[in-house]
Computed example of a mutant assay.
Amino acid sequence: MKNKKNRPTDGGGNWMDTYGDMVTLLLTFFIMLFAMSSLNQQKWELFVRSIYPHSNEEVQEQVAINTPLDDTSSKIEGTPDIPETMAEIDIDKLYLTLAERMNDIGIDGVTISRGEDYTFIVFEDKTFFDGDSSILTDQGKTTLDVFCDVISPAQDGVSQINIMAHTAQGNPDRPNNPRTDRMLSAMRAAEVCIFIQEKGIIEPEKLVNISYGQFRPVADNSTREGRTKNRRVEILMIDEGADLHSMNRYYDEYNSGVNADRTVVTGQEANGTGHGFAPASPSADGVSTTMSPLTDSTENASAEPGLSSDGTAEEAGGTVAE
């Protein structure tokens, strides 16, 4: 009789042991992943309701058990996640902040006026430049540093910044040399614009530099005080979403005093408390009177080469711009 070959005695079921071990290991692996993951409350509710559609209490119990204590996904839907350090910028109050900062660094005679949807700033006399010069002074750079620092957080609320430069007519009996007058005015506006652009606080396409030369005076050029007012740099900040108007409209509103209740001047005494800023005091024609004449000793000490003692720019053979 032939010997029969050895056959398995378990009916070929050994593979079940291996399969069972594999399934157990996979289940353990997924349980570990689930335990380490942060659970989204809404997804968990949907999952539980798909299994227990009529058991709302059990859903709440499961969520309470399985949602980590520090899970930020349980916040009310629609609530913005804003860091506490990011305070909302009020564009309407920006002019007060700017006035305070200018006053802190001792920049006097800056008039800041808040209109309906714009802010108009006037820097008089030599805030940025010496007479007959387009080179920013150290004080000018410091002033613009503060300006950029204040404006930077509110850049999204500003659609356009216009920089307007003006000169004074050095000789009231004879107009300035046109080339000198226009070039000086244009270069001053450009220098301020370039400084702001290089700070990177606002998109370059929002910056506009405008030169007016001597042709938009706000006072009489026959007096030193008048020339001081006329020799100025202005900045017009227009709010995002505001309609753009002609420059004449902005100037008319500013000079009319319609925004006097929201106009401040740095360096003036506020309520008799000393150095500070206070509401502007319009003159009869509505133009704010903010600067006081320098004493004779101060004028002589600060006279630049090429300037007379009263600050009038002079050159042989003609009158140049101030």
Rank of each mutant, 00 (worst) to 15 (best):
I91V: 07
D130L: 10
T119C: 06
V150W: 03
D81E: 15
I76S: 05
S74C: 11
D71P: 06
D138V: 12
D132H: 12
D145K: 11
I135L: 14
D81H: 07
N103S: 10
Y95K: 04
D104C: 09
I105W: 08
V150A: 00
T111G: 05
I65G: 03
R101D: 11
A64F: 12
E88H: 08
P80V: 06
T142Q: 14
K141D: 09
T85F: 15
D138L: 12
T85S: 07
I112D: 00
E100Q: 15
S73K: 05
T111P: 04
M86R: 11
F123C: 01
I76Y: 07
F120D: 02
V110C: 03
P83W: 03
E61F: 10
I105Y: 09
I121M: 05
E84C: 06
K141C: 05
T67G: 07
T142M: 14
F128Y: 05
F128L: 04
S74W: 06
I91T: 03
V122I: 11
S113N: 04
L144S: 05
Y118D: 12
D81A: 04
T111S: 10
G140E: 11
D125R: 15
T127Y: 06
K126M: 13
Q62D: 11
L136R: 00
G78I: 07
K93R: 13
F129Q: 04
G109E: 06
D117V: 06
K75M: 10
P83E: 01
A87Y: 09
V150E: 02
D81Q: 04
R101P: 05
R114I: 06
I65R: 15
V59A: 05
E61S: 13
D125A: 13
D149C: 04
F147H: 00
Q62R: 15
T143S: 11
E61P: 00
Y118L: 03
L98D: 02
T142S: 12
I65L: 15
T127P: 04
K93G: 04
L144I: 02
K75A: 09
L98G: 00
I107V: 12
D149I: 07
G106W: 08
E61M: 10
E88K: 08
Q139Y: 07
E77M: 13
T137N: 03
E124L: 14
E84A: 10
T142E: 15
D92G: 06
I91E: 08
D92C: 09
D90Y: 09
I65H: 08
V122D: 07
F123T: 01
I105Q: 11
A64Y: 06
Q60M: 14
G106C: 01
V59R: 09
T85G: 05
N66Y: 15
L69D: 15
T127V: 13
T85K: 13
D130I: 08
I107S: 08
I135A: 11
D104S: 11
D70M: 09
M102Y: 15
E88Q: 10
L94V: 03
G115D: 05
Y95N: 07
P80S: 01
E124C: 10
D138Y: 07
I107Y: 07
Y95Q: 04
D132Q: 12
I76Q: 08
L69H: 14
K126V: 11
I107W: 09
D145Y: 02
L94P: 03
D71W: 03
V146W: 01
V110A: 00
T119G: 00
I76R: 02
D138S: 10
T142D: 13
N66D: 11
V150P: 05
I91P: 00
E88M: 07
